[in-house]
Amino acid sequence: MTAADPAQGPIHAFAIGCSAGGLNALHAILPELPEGFPAPVVVVAHLGANDGGNMAAALRRDCRLPVVEAEERLPAQAGTVYIAPPDYHLLMEADHTFSLSADAKVLNARPSIDVFMESAAEAWGRSLAAILLTGANADGAAGMAAVKANGGLCIVQDPDGATAPEMPDAAIALGAAHWIAQPDRIAFLMISLCRGRGGGFPE
């Protein structure tokens, strides 16, 4: 078994990245997660500097899990959906607390999906599943590759049917997708993964 073999052990944390069309895709996933979902779910979405709060509010209405903005130095807790605040990079520390940075944009994005996923890959290693959804640029592909290199599991939205296929396409081209799925399948995958991923692709 290599370090990148995804077929071992349960998942303890989820990272989701998305851009153009992401809100719809998120709406197909997050409301399906049950109360007491046993892992934190961290969402990094490209937004205008002012509409971060709106997205959290829109998701909060439909989700059973609490949806909050990630705050610096606070721990990522199971059963909570965290949204990266607009105009800062969000990062995960080794002790599973959040950090923010005002460093320069990466691939023209802040928050950058790559920045979050690379730090989450280091912090969570094999117990992280990363999910990359619709988007119109290549942010997230390098982050997914880092997740995979650290033993995590990578799910990419099927570009066929995505509002903007560029983002999932870029991750697939980098070889950073273990599974490719439609959004309406992803919540089911997430729930199964919390119990373990020994069975491979849960059908």
Binding site: L91, M92, E93, D103, V115, S119
Partner: peptide, 9 residues
Amino acid sequence: YARASLRRR
């Protein structure tokens, strides 16, 4: 300093 962003830099 918080390590995650420092590591990147």
